[in-house]
């Protein structure tokens, strides 16, 4: 590179340029493309959580779909309830012969309860689950396998309880949110900006966290758990808190995704989607927050392009991506950029 200062200037300005482009996107993109972009940005929020736990905490979770699903189902249940006249049942419950509203559906009629559920149920489930495993010093591969079993159990449970969960088809046909129609003019763009704002906020939040003492201890626990025990720290709370934050981000992502996609179903949250979430981050770079955002967007754009034309091809491609990235490019695209810059 003959002029390193120019390159440095470009790489410094690039994120801001992308942010400006992202802000003005609703004026330039078609409604369909804007919707896709908004969905993928929602997924990028989840990817930030994976960087936190996997890249910096060494915790591989193959069950992030569970928390994504909790967020998605919470908002979907609220929208189902909000559309209903007093005392009636959601459409799919009528079809499957359900006679009364299950008790755990009723509170979702309140928007405050729904938002609280999106934020805190994943945190609660995530921290209880992580604590149960980590405080007994079980981790690594074991934790990955247990989270995969969790994803399987969660998806199977939803599928089998068709009468109260919507089963395999999931929940769909929403009218609107907080009294506004989802497709009324201006609403898609507003939801897009909300997603963008939450993505930027999550990015800044996780970045601050990783730069703090907490982030340092998390990385120390990743690199030598016993060593930091000998130094007098208990690594368990750090890992549990990191996992809970990642779960919260996944829940927010799931809720936003459901708003944009207009559907939440077991096919989006089971074993296979959960592990695909890890590949976004693997491709973007597991240690890099910006990489994770880029990875989530790129993989989903590629998926959209390839799988609509050749659905069978996508699985081969996905499989190859897993193998190649992990063997040849363990630091992902971010690693590639960093080595170019050095």
């Amino acid at each position: 590179m003959s002029d390193p200062t120019l390159l440095q200037r470009v790489s410094k300005a690039l994120p801001w340029l992308l942010l400006v482009l992202a802000i003005v996107a609703p004026f330039a993109l078609s409604a369909y493309d804007l919707n896709l972009l908004a969905r993928f940005m929602a997924m990028a929020i989840l990817a930030l959580g994976i960087v936190l736990i996997w890249g910096h905490g060494g915790i591989l979770s193959l069950g992030q779909g569970v928390f994504f699903g909790i967020g998605g189902y919470a908002i979907a249940m609220h929208m189902k309830m909000a559309d209903l006249p007093e005392g009636e049942l959601p459409d799919f419950m009528l079809w499957s012969g359900q006679e009364s509203l299950p008790f755990w559906w009723a509170p979702f009629a309140s928007p405050t309860f729904a938002i609280a559920a999106i934020l805190f149920v994943p945190v609660l489930v995530g921290s209880l689950f992580a604590w149960a495993v980590f405080h007994r010093r079980v981790g690594g591969t074991y934790f990955a396998l247990i989270t995969q079993a969790l994803a399987l159990a969660f998806a199977t449970l939803i599928i089998s309880r068709q009468d109260v969960t919507g089963g395999f088809n999931g929940l769909t046909d929403f009218y609107g949110i907080f009294g506004v129609g989802l497709s009324s003019p201006g609403v898609p763009a507003a939801l897009y900006w909300l997603t963008l704002a939450l993505l930027v906020a999550s990015y800044c939040g996780v970045r601050l966290l990783l730069a703090s003492r907490f982030g340092m201890l998390l990385r120390a626990a990743r690199d030598g758990e016993n060593r930091i025990r000998f130094l007098g720290y208990n690594p368990t709370p750090f890992k549990v808190v990191a996992f809970a934050i990642a779960a919260m981000l996944a829940g927010i992502a799931g809720a936003l995704f459901t708003l944009h996609a207009g559907v939440v179903s077991p096919a989006l949250i089971g074993v296979v989607p959960s592990i695909e979430m890890v590949v976004w981050v693997a491709i973007g770079g597991r240690y890099s927050l910006a990489g994770a955002i880029v990875g989530a967007l790129l993989v989903n754009i590629a998926r959209d392009a390839v799988s609509s034309a050749f659905p069978e091809l996508w699985l081969y491609l996905m499989g190859l991506l897993f193998i190649l990235v992990v063997t040849l490019l363990p630091n992902g695209l971010a690693g590639l950029v960093a080595s170019k810059r050095a």
């Binding site: 591989l60 592990i275 890890v278 699985l315 499989g319 991506l321 897993f322 992990v326």
Partner: peptide, 26 residues
């Protein structure tokens, strides 16, 4: 071909062999 190369990285082995699993299923 695959696992031997990744022997010191158990979590990466999980991901790479998951890729193999996808390809074999398809």
């Amino acid at each position: 071909t695959l696992i031997r190369r990744l022997s010191a990285r158990p979590l990466d082995t999980l991901l790479a062999t998951w890729g193999v699993s996808l390809i074999l299923q398809q």
